[in-house]
Write a protein that binds this DNA or RNA. Structure first.
Lengths: 212, 212
DNA sequence: AGGCAATGTGAGCAGTTATTCGCATCATGA
DNA sequence: TCATGATGCGAATAACTGCTCACATTGCCT
């Protein structure tokens, strides 16, 4: 396993144009997700992914410049899904009370992450290591923006200075609570939703009026 | 890299008895920590650890049955440190208001995790994969127990049914908020302490009195 | 001193893995 | 139909890595 810090190539060699190759790419990406879920990071290698996808390694490298690109693609895919759902939830949350709005956002995040919790966990860990390209960073910023916008609507109730920082903190907290629940096998979405919402509400509206 | 699911050997071959070998073991453990911090999981290999420790691979394998044992040792080491500090903080928190008690606990957790944030992050991720032995599980349970004990003192104020589950959730939340802060370079411990305490308080005392 | 157990060494084995490349097959437009 | 580019293949290569083992060195004890 040659340690690669810098990726030799950044762009895929080819972009699929025929339906045939689009199916191939999709199979590879999905296989990558499954390998990460079942074998974890240690068992994640390009030969295994190609095998599970039912294609040859050569085909894999036709569309992905290197192993990390697979993870980056998965990351972007999951992020896009979450982003779309968060955007919709943020739109619906217009005019609702803060607690209710937070609950909507929590519901979406929980729904997304419980869909593939193991994958979410690995990607969350790896995202920090990868040099995300512009697209990925935009996706992340978009999610935070939608949350920040919701928070801004309730500015008066919120006793935290930096709303964007608060959005990132909320995302991290929510992820952690879901992970914690999954790790202990307590995955009742409704109960989880209540806990997450409550923690978020506490974080945002607390007055921190207590001494050391 | 032979993929090992089950560890071939569970016990180290030797337990150090002379001061010389104790120094060797310590050097190996510390080198392992540094490699994880600087090169991450991908760059973590036994040859690199032995190199950085200034010993030969053979010596490493004299005291650690396999690579995972290094991570398990690190995990136990960090957990012990946290456990000791949390125990002390829990003792001091006797009789204090819930908010103040939480703040004490938050301070300890933050102090610990900010000492070596990158290491903490990797260990947190890997702990889930490792089959922890009895010692490790006891350490984890101890930390949760101390927190649960503190929470029990304030039972009336807390609107969460399972206090032990709450303790695990608080630990996860705290870790996540610290990670989030580190990732964005915002590591003012005092501000962090306020945010963590507030989120914890919200999680514990919230009445969840809002509809869907 | 000298013997024995503890400790330390590092080349090398056996295996794994990322990536390439020369070639085969397929699909489409002329 | 057939030429041509797109797509697919997988053996082979060049590394890298977990771990062992036969041997050397050290230090304690009598």
């Amino acid at each position: 396993m040659p340690t690669r810090i810098a990726r030799a190539r950044t762009r895929p060699r080819k972009t699929p144009s025929q339906p045939r190759s689009e199916r191939t790419v999709e199979a590879i990406v999905e296989a990558a997700a499954r390998i990460l879920e079942t074998r974890g990071l240690a068992g994640f290698n390009t030969n295994a992914v190609a095998d599970k996808a039912g294609v040859s390694v050569g085909s894999l490298y036709q569309y992905f410049p290197n192993k990390d690109a697979l993870i980056a693609t998965l990351s972007a895919r999951e992020r896009t899904l979450l982003g779309t759902e968060i955007a919709a939830a943020a739109r619906q949350a217009q005019g609702l009370a803060l607690a209710t709005a937070l609950r909507q956002l929590a519901r979406v995040a929980i729904h997304r992450q419980l869909a593939r919790p193991d994958l979410a966990r690995v990607l969350d860990f790896e995202e920090q290591r990868l040099v995300l390209d512009e697209t990925d960073r935009t996706l992340t910023r978009d999610i935070a923006s939608h949350m920040t916008a919701v928070l801004r609507t309730h500015r008066a109730e919120i006793h935290v200075g930096d709303l964007e920082a608060a959005a990132f903190d909320l995302i991290a907290m929510t992820r952690a609570l879901i992970d914690s629940a999954v790790a202990r096998g307590k995955v009742d979405p409704a109960a989880l939703e209540r806990r997450v919402t409550q923690a978020a509400l506490g974080y945002l509206t607390g007055r921190a009026s207590f001494g050391p």
